[in-house]
């Protein structure tokens, strides 16, 4: 029975890996190419005035854009490069915790039959709301 369980689990594991790979690999290629274009910098530039509503400096935009377009690891790397106060880091970390790796993770959730637009709006909405609240609270401390 144990051998049969391991076999079935192994098969399910392979199926799931194949399914996730089919989704993740193409997206990975697109974002890797995107990383070498000025697009990420442009988006950050456009969004930098918006950072004030989260009580964050304009440079923080690049962290949010990297986290959302690429992944949390890229964002964490950028956090250390921009000098921020501890409260500001928590604000940005909270926003990133709700909304990150949008391309890869949206592609995966699409497999579950949930619309991409809905997924992105929900996550950005949560990031926006939590950023505004945390930014205000941080300003009080």
């Amino acid at each position: 029975m144990l051998v049969a369980s391991i076999k079935t689990g192994f098969k399910k594991g392979l199926e799931t890996t194949w399914l996730l790979a089919k989704v993740i690999v193409p997206v990975y290629f697109v974002i890797t190419i995107l990383k070498y274009t000025p697009v990420i910098d442009w988006i950050a530039y456009v969004f930098s005035p918006l950072m004030a509503i989260f009580n964050l400096p304009g440079e923080a935009a690049i962290i949010l854009v990297l986290g959302n377009v690429l992944n949390l690891y890229a964002a964490v790397g950028a956090i250390t490069a921009v000098s921020l106060a501890p409260m500001e880091i928590t604000t940005i970390a909270l926003m990133l915790s709700f909304s990150h790796s949008l391309f890869v993770e949206t592609a995966v959730t699409k497999k579950l039959g949930v619309s991409s637009v809905k997924v992105v709006l929900i996550r950005l909405g949560l990031a926006l709301a939590s950023g505004i609240i945390m930014g205000r609270l941080g300003g009080l401390v």
């Binding site: 964002a75 956090i79 501890p86 928590t90 970390a93």
Partner: peptide, 9 residues
């Protein structure tokens, strides 16, 4: 943990 490593609460 990743965000804590970056200095978040």
């Amino acid at each position: 943990l990743l965000l804590v490593a970056a200095g978040g609460n």
